[in-house]
């Protein structure tokens, strides 16, 4: 087993007292894994991702990122290691131009301008949107916004990336682009989605959530081909596996 990057033990979380959204979650993720977090709407996928990056307080249990326990005082350190891509790209992009937005994190971490410039260029090249550098964010298409929001994360050179519903609103070409970009990211990535075809294309390991609990944790091959299991948890076989 590779070095453990994320270690979650008995995590329970509720937005309202007495109504837990996540219950007794245990998750161990190694450094080069690609993990798909699947489940029907309201299963707790997005909440789990948000907790991993420290967006949510008052959980019970423990979260450790690269051996560092997730606490208020360790948040800056942990957030340097994790890049989180929001479901809604509009929520991620807030600066005026793509270049400024991609430079936001490296500048916040106090890097010299030369290094910021280098990181911005690399992140834009990796996502194939160098030509959009000076373009105003509001002028981007949905697919471009998604790629730009991934670039804003890559410029942090994170050890881990978390993506919440990354394939939503992407056309086939941008979807293929995104799959390729994720394939090139050779660190730990956790992708929450109910687009099982996307998960099939990008992940080797799958965790199935239902009602805030982990129902199954195993290989993509084993879980995504299990029609009964998927249907019992409000999902369906990926289209690419149905033979249609």
């Amino acid at each position: 087993m590779s070095h453990i990057h994320i270690d979650v033990e008995n995590l329970t979380y509720a937005y309202e007292a007495g109504v837990p959204v996540l219950q007794d979650i245990c998750l161990h993720a190694g450094e080069n894994e690609s993990i798909g977090l699947i489940g029907a709407n309201g299963a707790g996928k997005s909440t789990l991702l948000k907790l991993l990056v420290g967006l949510g307080t008052g959980f019970t249990g423990s979260i450790r990122v690269e051996e560092i326990p997730l606490e208020k005082k360790t948040l800056p350190k942990i957030r340097e290691k994790i890049g989180y891509v929001f479901q809604d790209a509009d929520a991620q992009l807030f600066m005026t131009t793509v270049g400024e937005d991609v430079a936001f994190a490296p500048r916040n971490y106090g890097l010299p301008e030369e290094e910021v410039e280098k990181r911005v260029q690399t992140a834009l090249e990796k996502t194939h949107i160098s030509h959009l550098r000076d373009k105003a964010v509001y002028k981007l298409s949905g697919g471009e916004k998604k790629l730009a929001s991934i670039a804003t994360i890559l410029s942090m050179t994170p050890h881990i990336i978390l993506l919440d519903e990354p394939s939503v609103a992407l056309d086939p070409q941008n979807r293929r682009n995104l799959i390729r970009i994720l394939g090139e990211f050779d660190h730990l990535k956790i992708i929450a989605s109910h687009d099982l075809d996307f998960i099939w294309d990008t992940c080797e390991r799958v965790i199935l959530l239902s009602g805030g609990r982990i129902v199954r944790d195993g290989s993509a091959e084993e879980i995504l081909r299990d029609r009964e299991l998927l249907e019992a948890n409000g999902l369906e076989l990926p289209l690419s596996l149905t033979g249609r």
């Binding site: 800056p76 340097e80 929520a91 910021v116 410039e117 994360i153």
Partner: peptide
């Protein structure tokens, strides 16, 4: 809600209450 998400997006990219220095992306 949207403002909160925007703020979260800033926080997870290292925002700690001050916008970073530098006035140009070009090397000084």
């Amino acid at each position: 809600d949207r403002a909160e998400v925007l703020y979260e997006s800033m926080c997870i990219r290292g925002f700690s209450g001050e916008f970073p220095g530098g006035t140009s992306l070009r090397p000084a």
